[in-house]
Simulated assay, not measured.
Amino acid sequence: MALSYKARRRLAALILLVGLPVYIVVAITVVSLFDRPPILLELLIYVVLGLLWALPFKFVFLGVGQADPEDDA
Rank of each mutant, 00 (worst) to 15 (best):
A73M: 08
L40Y: 00
L20W: 02
L51C: 13
F59P: 10
V47G: 05
T29F: 03
Y46N: 05
P38K: 06
Y23H: 07
D72L: 15
T29L: 04
L40T: 07
L44H: 01
Y23W: 06
P21R: 07
F57N: 11
L62F: 12
D68R: 10
I45Q: 07
L14P: 02
M1R: 12
S32H: 05
A12C: 01
D71L: 15
E70K: 10
P38E: 05
V60F: 13
R36L: 05
A73R: 12
G50F: 09
I45W: 04
I24E: 04
R36N: 07
E70A: 15
V25S: 03
G65H: 10
V18L: 03
G65I: 03
Y5C: 09
S32P: 02
L40E: 08
L55Y: 15
P38S: 08
E42R: 09
V48G: 13
L14G: 09
L52C: 11
L41C: 06
P21W: 06
V22M: 06
L55I: 13
T29S: 05
L49F: 06
V22N: 02
V47T: 11
Y5L: 09
A12R: 05
L41F: 08
V64T: 15
L33I: 04
F34S: 01
R8A: 06
G63Y: 08
L11T: 06
W53E: 10
A2T: 12
L33Y: 01
G19V: 03
P38G: 09
P21Y: 02
P69V: 11
V26W: 08
I45K: 05
G50H: 14
I45F: 08
L49N: 11
L52R: 05
V26T: 02
A27K: 02
V30D: 02
L51Q: 14
A73E: 14
A12F: 07
L3K: 12
P69I: 11
L40C: 05
L33Q: 03
D35N: 03
V64K: 09
L17W: 04
P38C: 01
Y46V: 11
T29Y: 00
L43Q: 09
Y5D: 10
F57L: 11
G63L: 12
V31N: 07
D35M: 03
T29D: 07
I15D: 01
V47Q: 05
P37R: 04
V26Y: 07
V47F: 08
R9N: 05
K6I: 10
Y5S: 08
L16G: 00
G65L: 14
K58P: 01
A2E: 13
R10G: 13
E70F: 02
L55R: 15
A73I: 14
S32D: 01
K6L: 14
K58E: 12
L43Y: 12
G19A: 03
E42P: 06
A12N: 01
A2L: 08
F34H: 03
M1F: 14
Q66S: 13
K6R: 14
L11W: 00
T29V: 00
R36G: 06
S4T: 15
D72K: 14
A27V: 09
F61Y: 14
A12E: 07
L52H: 06
S32A: 02
L43A: 15
K58I: 15
L14K: 09
I24F: 00
I15F: 00
I15W: 00
V30L: 11
A54G: 11
E70L: 13
G65E: 10
S32V: 00
